[in-house]
Nucleic acid binder design. Structure first.
Lengths: 212, 212, 212, 212
DNA sequence: CATGAATGAGCCTTCATTCAT
DNA sequence: GATGAATGAAGGCTCATTCAT
């Protein structure tokens, strides 16, 4: 997570084995409770209770709610990262790449739907988390923008589109649809149809021509 | 607003002129404070202070934070409504209609950017508000879906697209871009460019052919 | 009521006809609400609402909750008074007199059961009401004590009994049984059986010999 | 106390010694303040102040006023219980048994007069406490009824009396006289005279013949 | 390091009472 | 007199954070 290296307030990692166990169980408990009760409704006491340890112990490792939430995100880091386009590096077909990317994203989102919804809740509340998410998204958007620019230069994509704006718009489209489908439960649609639908819109938007 | 007719707990409207003035000033104060401090940080005492009245007066008209927030939304109702496509009824060009619709939406959004951001914050927290927003969005999406279906039937739009999914995806795209630009301050872009960009993406996505 | 003549704080009686009507409807409403919700749970606003008049109007006639409660008691005065033994003056049989007295008391109690329960609630809370009730009871007890003394002097009742103590004990016995049966709903027993049972205990206690 | 086993909301007992001390001092403080100021006038802050601890500490052990009051009763439990008739099991004389029972009750009542008065205040207000008292009284009355029935069967007591009604009536008589004498301060009478007087009435009521 | 009780600021909510209209 | 909105003191309760053991 972005904070990992920069946040000097963070408590040091525990040295003893016992400490590591406690810390880990607190993080696991926090995720459980956050996902069950929501960020705001969660009291720190609930977390320590879930972790079967004393209230005070939480402060041994974390400075407060925000930090333990950050730790939960950190812990789930890899699962949640925007999948890289390289995920589908073994093809040249731009549409196939987009599809692979979307699929990877949506699969990851679905697997962590509760946490993603939580992230959304917290981002609406907490500026740090909002910045964090923005930074992540920015990286993703930048990659997409680069890809669009590349396709435009190769004459494959609509040259009129502003690569940055377009990348941003399409990224939001996918991430909000994921939220809508997996968190809110709107749109009863299968994963395959969702991937296909979003990919087609994305490809159309760029005016890529399907090879068919 | 949706609650108006359904929420039986809502306090009665004031009978006297004085009461109407107080109620109105409370709503105005609430909007000011909510937009300034955010929903969570706002204490009801802040609102009454801003409205220059006693704490208790707030409870004369509202049962609590949620209800006064609902009243603020109610009050801003018309400004915030998703603009109807009819806005551009005086043309036949599908792209022109989309553009007009997007412009209307983005203009309205920009005018109430703070409130829209607030709505987003609260929707992440409060289920009632979430439902409220969902209902509104659903109506908007339904209209868009109908429009897409119509264009498909007329052979103007990509027949492969699922109208509902597409309408949902494109609507989210526009609304999140509005959030991104006007609330978060991302993408330094002019309103015109934003409208043009989103409209082009939208039109491309449907495979509408610009007349040029 | 005892306060009627002594309490200088009491508002004057209204002169206008309209005022009298308002005052009367407030008292009626107060009784309704007190009996329905209990003394503590009753808010003055509930009373004025029930009386279909403004909150402020209550203060035109009463200085507060205690005073309007006193007015309710005042209003119900005659129904609630301890019945006088004279009620059965047309017989010489001591037991018949006791029975008549008990019956009269219990009938009156039953008729105003809600109010009597209320009186009990308030007496436990408010010292003024407690004193009021004590004064009333004292008069009743005094009469009973005199009656016992008389029977003792005539050689009809156990001479060992302390007339005051006995009168107090038996009076409490009857009044608490009334409370128990009519307010709490204990002892499923008919009025006749209740009267008969209490009268027999009373007569036995005095060692009066039934004539049979 | 009756709630002990049934009230699932009750906070857990403290685990540490310190916690036990705090809890105990809160209960002691509560009794002091309740007896001094009455139930209604007591603010929870007064109790914590009296116990020299923070407001919040009270909530560590009790969920509110009702529960801490219940704990006070619980704590005084043994002193307040209706004394059992067995208290005087070493005699066969029915009157002596009644006298011993009454004396035990009145002595206990006098010792806890303030608390008994309090119990009365609260019973008039709070339904839970009312039920609690009712259950206790019922047990006491049941024992007395059984005793009366026994005496009737042995031909020693007036066969006409309804055992339940009579037991109820006489029990109320004694308990209200205790209230009257020890709480209200009516009837200037010595304990011995009170015991003697009530016992004679009780015995007379049953038509027991004194052995003299 | 763990424990879990203690702390107390902070905010909400009620409602008797007043008072301008 | 009637009206009903305004007032604001009062007290309840929560829970993040600290700290003695």
């Amino acid at each position: 997570m972005a904070r990992s290296s920069t946040d000097e307030a963070r408590r040091e990692l525990p040295r003893s084995r016992r400490g590591q166990r406690t810390r880990a169980s607190l993080i696991a408990a926090a995720r459980t409770v956050f996902e069950r009760d929501g960020y705001l409704n969660t009291r720190l006491a609930d977390i320590s209770a879930e972790a079967n340890c004393a209230t005070g112990s939480l402060y041994t490792y974390f400075s407060g709610k925000e930090e333990i939430f950050a730790a939960v995100l950190d812990d789930a880091q890899d699962e949640m990262l925007h999948p890289h386009v390289r995920a589908a590096a073994h093809t040249d077909d731009p549409i196939a790449i987009i599809e692979a990317s979307n699929r990877a994203y949506l699969v990851a989102y679905r697997r962590n739907a509760k946490l993603m919804g939580l992230l959304d809740e917290v981002a609406a509340i907490d500026d740090d988390v909002r910045q964090l998410r923005r930074r992540r998204t920015a990286a993703f958007v930048r990659r997409n923008a680069a890809s669009i620019r590349d396709l435009q230069e190769r004459g494959l994509a609509d040259a009129e589109l502003d690569p940055n704006l377009t990348a941003g718009a399409l990224s939001w489209m996918v991430s909000r649809m994921a939220y809508s489908v997996f968190v809110l439960g709107d749109h009863r649609v299968s994963l395959d149809d969702l991937v296909a639908g979003l990919t087609r819109i994305w490809a159309n938007a760029l005016r890529l021509t399907p090879r068919d």
